[in-house]
Nucleic acid binder design. Structure first.
Lengths: 123, 123, 123, 123
DNA sequence: GTGGTCTAGACCACT
DNA sequence: GTGGTCTAGACCACC
């Protein structure tokens, strides 16, 4: 499993981990019953506190993406993939909506917003 | 000047003020040399601490959007409107880019992202 | 009498007036018994509050540079010019001292400070 | 790290802290990645409000002298020392220039100014 | 433990 | 009345 941490980002580290694990599950890179790295192992690998990884894993379990078996490890949950995808889409939608509204408040015309969007999509 | 505070938002109040004032300046609702509400006046109006408003105004001045004259008040700066619009566009662009990349990491196809975007634009 | 106000400076306006009037007296541009502009007149000319000019004139009188005659106006005091010059020199000395100490705290070598000083003197 | 506060000075406490920390960084007393005292720790040590220290640290970060990591602390930035030294020199230069011009306005001859300067340098 | 934000109220300097 | 600074203490998020 590949996680990239940006410690100078405004996004908390544990959330960066949650996001990336969710993304890999939804994308199919991590499949049902795959085992995640141990809390201490991942912490060591990323050179961050084990508490931070623990918080990320707690979050994933709470959202139903993983199941933790005491004394064994954390596994990708057997879950409805559609439900997950929907959750992700709702999240993306909310963020997009926020950004578009902000752009409009700034006086950007819809045409200008569309132009920026297209430039980004084609990168 | 109209400011709306969402105190249950994760975004700090002072930043909400900064954002909205910038937006109004860029959109032309606030023009050069217009005077902003007094620190204490706005604080009272929004029922928040004067220090919070002060922090927002400090931020605006630091970014060159306003000029404050001791003992007189805070005024909209006589500044290059294009430079400001550019700053806003860069900000919108960065947020959009971040969201699109996140969507892709989640396995959303470009077509799906475009669809979500169009739905939002037509709201 | 010529006064130049820099309203964006950190130095209070009344102090700028005090400084410049003192300088003109010491330099001999304003002589004993010369009359200063009226408070209201100068305020109008500089487009500032009469209270600000009043504060400056109060300061000058307190320092012995001027004498105010009720109902007539403010005059340059008949004063010991040496005492004035000494006061100015002490003031200049104090500021120079402060700056030099700051420069040293920043790790600038004496040679570097001397170099900067010479460049300024030759402007 | 050693900070000396003069609470009866006209210079705001937070600015005194900023100045002294900058000076120590430029002088090399504080090196890259050195950690600064915690906001609350320094506040306690200097017997001032934590907010005042916070404001100083915010200023330092804004000027690129430090980097602060949420939940960890404030560190001396890995930055171009030449750029910093230049900034300090510009600041010293501006202050010197101001003082010299003031001295000249007071009618002091260049020779007299040089004399005062030399006396100070040899303290 | 760390920094990030906010409060409510005080005092001072400038206009 | 305006902004500028400071206090003492609170709550939250992050590591």
């Amino acid at each position: 499993m590949k996680i990239i941490i940006n410690s100078s980002s405004m996004v908390p580290i544990y959330e960066q981990i949650v996001d990336q694990v969710k993304a890999q599950i939804v994308a199919g890179d991590l499949k049902e019953n795959d085992i995640l790295p141990s809390v201490r192992g991942l912490a060591k690998g990323l050179k961050i506190s084990a508490l931070t990884v623990k918080k990320a894993y707690d979050n994933l379990e709470q959202d139903g993406f993983t199941v933790t078996v005491h004394g064994k490890g954390t596994y990708v949950a057997v879950a409805n993939p559609e439900r997950m995808k929907e959750e992700q889409m709702r999240s993306v939608e909310a963020e997009l909506d926020w950004t578009v509204q902000k752009a409009r408040r700034c006086g950007l015309a819809d045409a200008e917003i569309r132009k920026i969007f297209e430039i980004i999509m084609e990168d």
